[in-house]
Write a protein that binds this DNA or RNA. Structure first.
Length: 576
RNA sequence: CGGGACGUGGCGCAGCUUGGUAGCGCGCAGCGUUCGGGACGCUGAGGUCGUGGGUUCAAAUCCCGCCGUCCCGACCA
């Protein structure tokens, strides 16, 4: 392609209010334009990179035996009601009506449709299957943000494994895990596979692929010592035992004006150190009140509460005016002693503890000497607390580190939720019917693209890894109005093209500084600079975008040199 | 949804406090000089000031509603 005839609208100013680096650089480099909140146009350059990412994903999916299909994005609401997710997904699901008044939804993922298709399987002999598609997904995000990182309409590669038994599911899951690692490595992304919560998707086990980045929204816990890696929504840690001494009797003591864990601890250091208090939080789960108990110095991880109670997404902290009628006191004096009218969910760290302090459900009064087993009717024990950095690893005792990352992929062992909902059963050798066991695997294509930018840029602009660059090489003509220079550049350009190199000729009548700045902003991995001076002496310059180091190369050997560099760049990966 | 901010040529912004003929930089078009690190001169095109209402002789400016966008919190690829 010729730059002079290609629409690459680069900008000198940052877009207003764009916080994420990838958003700024992709807009300035002429890759994307925003249409509305969470809705983006892929311009020529953006689309070229997007298609390269898609091609990598497609190759790796085909390599593990995936069969590509394409499903509709407009679904009758009926299907989502059948799986139960019409209500479960809440406001994130786009809903609309057709002219006849029939309810529809825009697909946010496709377990339902693939589950229906799976009803056409009848025999274990047809399994396993890996089905996938790469298509638009719609999610009415409460807050789209950070350019392509969080949008309302995006492309997802979603695949589904169909198996007769659990070992089959494990194998399909493992194939995906390895394929995902290869895909991300080929894109130049360092993606860590971490244990994750399955959330509203359901199923037994899930793994997320996370790229380390300050622009990310997920908190990841890793061990400095072993290979323990988990999303904070799922992560656990080992706690030092607290010595409670001999159990004492329950006692009430006045605590005027003491409303916080900290204030209570400072006023009563012996009786109520933070790790000796019970923190009582009131939540509504699907509009049912729940009293949540944690150790005073621990924080609630809401996703864990959802997972423990099987609630999809209907969670909210209670309002102060809702709490008093339930418990008889205001926040600051709440406790679970003697509470029987609402469900009590307690964190594992409280199990077996005694001589604890907690609110007495009467303003300005607390209990001491509380025994969990003796004084509180816990209806459910669960791991609810949020892990903090510096705590000890459950596997090896090493220190845990907490960092932010972008979720670029998520794979789930679903089980039989959808096959049972839609009646996808197959017969085994003995002629017995079993629901098909499903796995579900997703990658956000444009998010992966943004993640590449987030992890590969410098002060001049984007530094694309060769496999996902919009072009591999730019041939920059310094004087497009000089006949000899133009001819030399055209020859190099044509030769590279015939070698299969993805090359663009910057033949614009711009000054050199403009062309250099643009090629660096846009991030093309290799640049061949051809000017009148060099042409006279038979040399050109060869510049690598990463590091911007330049070498002089003879005009005769430049094509071979570039082809070699491009070929080695194509197979470079960040695989650890 | 809760909290904060902003909407003025294609992009980035000033003007609003104190109402009175809409401005700057970049970009764009023409001509000329330049041109190996975002050139310069001259000439020029381009704006319902988000939108609806109100106040006023007069509204980008003051008041109210709505819409949109961004940022901070609860969701996900």
């Amino acid at each position: 392609m010729r730059w002079s005839q290609t629409f690459i609208p680069t900008l000198r100013d940052d877009p207003a209010d764009a916080e994420a680096v990838s958003h700024r650089l992709l807009v300035r480099g002429g890759f994307i334009r925003q249409l509305a909140a969470g809705s983006y146009t892929m311009l020529t350059m953006g689309q070229r990179t997007r298609l390269k990412i898609a091609a990598i994903i497609r190759e790796e999916m085909n390599a593990i035996g995936g069969q590509e299909m394409m499903l509709p994005t407009l679904h009758p609401a009926e299907i989502w009601k059948q799986s139960g997710r019409y209500d479960l997904m809440g406001d994130n699901l786009f809903r609309l009506q057709d002219r006849k008044g029939i309810d529809h939804v825009l697909g946010m993922t496709e377990e339902e449709i693939f589950g229906m298709l799976a009803t056409e399987l009848f025999s274990y002999r047809q399994l396993p299957q890996i089905w996938y598609q790469m298509h638009t997904k719609f999610r009415d995000e409460p807050r789209p943000k950070s350019g392509l990182l969080r949008v309302r309409e995006f492309t997802m590669k979603d695949s589904y494994t169909l198996d007769i038994d659990l070992p089959g599911l494990d194998s399909g899951f493992d194939k995906h895990r390895r394929a995902y690692k290869r895909m991300f490595a080929r894109m130049g992304l360092k993606a860590f596979d971490v244990e994750a919560s399955s959330g509203a998707m359901g199923g037994s086990e899930s793994v997320e692929f996370i790229v380390r980045s300050e622009a990310g929204e997920d908190w990841i816990v890793t061990c400095e010592n072993c290979d323990y890696r988990a999303n904070r929504e799922k992560a656990t840690s080992a706690l030092a035992l607290v010595d409670d001494g001999e159990p004492l009797d329950l006692d009430r003591f006045p605590t005027p004006g003491l409303r916080t864990i900290k204030a209570l601890a400072e006023a009563n250091p012996d009786l109520a150190a933070p790790d000796r208090q019970i923190k009582s939080l009131v939540y509504f789960l699907d509009e049912q009140p729940v009293l949540v108990l944690l150790r005073g110095d621990h924080d609630l991880e809401e996703q864990k509460l959802l997972d423990a109670t099987g609630v999809g997404e209907g969670i909210r902290p209670a309002q102060p005016d809702e709490i008093k009628p339930l418990l008889g006191a205001n926040p600051g004096s709440l406790g679970a002693v003697g509470v029987e009218n609402i469900q009590i969910v307690a964190d594992e760290a409280l199990r077996g503890r005694h001589n604890m302090a907690t609110g007495a459900n009467e303003d300005d009064w607390h209990f001491s000497g509380v025994s969990l087993d003796r004084d509180i009717v816990v209806s459910k024990w669960a791991d609810l607390r949020s892990v903090s950095s510096g705590e000890a690893c459950v596997n090896c005792g090493g220190q845990l580190e907490l960092w932010k990352g972008i979720e670029v992929g998520h794979i789930f062992k679903l089980g039989t939720k959808y096959s049972e909902a839609f009646g996808a059963y197959v017969q085994d050798e003995a002629g017995e019917s079993h629901p098909v066991i499903m796995g579900s695997y997703g990658i956000g294509v444009e998010r992966a693209m943004a993640a590449v930018v987030e992890s590969s840029y410098d002060e001049k602009g984007i530094v694309w890894p060769v496999p996902v660059a919009p072009f591999e090489v730019v041939v920059t003509i310094l004087r497009a109005d000089d006949a000899a220079t133009l001819e030399a550049a055209e020859n190099v350009y044509a030769a590279l093209k015939s070698e299969g190199v993805d090359v663009i000729l910057d033949d614009r009548l711009e000054r050199p500084g403009v062309k250099f700045a643009d090629s660096e902003l846009v991030g093309i991995p290799f640049r061949v600079t051809i000017g009148p001076r060099g042409v006279e002496s038979g040399t050109v310059e060869f510049t690598r975008r990463a590091g911007l180091d330049t070498v002089e190369v003879s005009l005769d050997s430049i094509v071979n040199e570039v082809v070699a560099a491009v070929r080695s760049g194509r197979s470079t990966s960040n695989d650890d």
